[in-house]
């Protein structure tokens, strides 16, 4: 059984402003992902989102679409991600892990079975980008039964009444999608983000994470001036894919984004 709250809580208590890296599990091979997880376990990283590749990722831009395709070709799947978490947990009991999956791989395994297996492997949180508040109840119940938390999303288009409910039902943190559009790097943050973040901070009962579009130390700094957690996905995934020495690249990029 995952000891979800405490693992994340301990981590969050270490410092206020932290990073949440996203990895596409199996991009480059599952063994590489396990090594990247070890590299990610450093001060200033609150949690890692471990992406389960899906064939039709409607919330993702070109970088994560391509990464998902590579990961599937390399044999990754929800089952493989669960096995990866289990293997990682045998050596590391401190780094909080969020399994980030589209709904279908979970539905195919069966909601109860999937969440039980995810929890037993040692993950802490589950994130599902196309399961909004309306559809989340059965997922939240199955998660709670297994000691997992479901992270809910808010967006610039979310109205205040929904925000209240999302703030009430999210676990671990509240993920604010920082802008309109899909995942992938933006040049600048701002605009939609500032207004949305003000509204979210007013009702949040958990730390707030901001994601979508963050790719530079300046972006992370911008988010950290306004929220606790900064999510970096596409920019990290693309770097690891391009790098000749991905472990060194991972270490260097995290250090640049979040000096220890």
């Amino acid at each position: 059984m995952a000891d979800s709250d405490s693992r994340l809580d301990r981590r969050l208590a270490e410092r206020d402003k932290q990073l949440v890296p996203y990895l596409m599990a199996g991009d480059g091979g599952l063994e590489w992902t396990r090594v990247f997880l070890e590299v990610c376990d450093r001060p200033g990283v609150a949690c890692v989102e471990l992406g389960v590749p899906f064939s039709d990722p409607i919330a993702d831009g070109p970088v994560l679409q391509a990464a998902a395709r590579r990961a599937i070709e390399a044999g990754s799947s929800l089952k493989a991600v669960i096995a990866l978490v289990e293997k990682f947990r045998r050596k590391n009991d401190t780094l909080p892990l969020a399994v980030f999956s589209y709904a279908n791989p979970i539905a195919k395994m069966g909601l109860e079975d999937a969440f039980k297996a995810i929890a037993e492997a040692g993950a802490d949180l589950v994130m599902m980008p196309e399961v909004p508040l309306e559809e989340s109840a059965p997922f939240r119940e199955a998660a709670a039964e297994n000691g997992l938390g479901v992270v809910l999303f808010a967006a610039p288009s979310t109205d205040n009444a929904r925000l209240m409910q999302i703030a009430e039902h999210t676990r671990g943190f509240l993920y604010l999608i920082g802008r309109y559009g899909v995942t992938g790097a933006s040049k600048e943050l701002g605009g939609d983000l500032d207004a949305a973040l003000n509204r979210v901070q007013a009702v949040a009962r958990t730390p707030v994470a901001v994601g979508f579009g963050l790719s530079t130390p300046e972006h992370v700094e911008y988010v950290h001036a306004r929220a606790d957690l900064a999510v970096v996905g596409s920019a990290l995934v693309e770097r690891l894919h391009q790098a000749e020495d991905p472990v060194a690249a991972c270490r260097a990029f995290l250090a640049r984004l979040m000096p220890e």
Binding site: A59, A103, E130, E134, A154, S157
Partner: peptide
């Protein structure tokens, strides 16, 4: 949503939060 998104067990609103509004 004001009307029922489901046809018995099927249907629903499995959309990213940005599209719910």
């Amino acid at each position: 949503m004001r009307s029922d998104p489901y046809f018995e067990l099927y249907g629903g609103v499995f959309a990213p939060e940005t599209l719910v509004a």
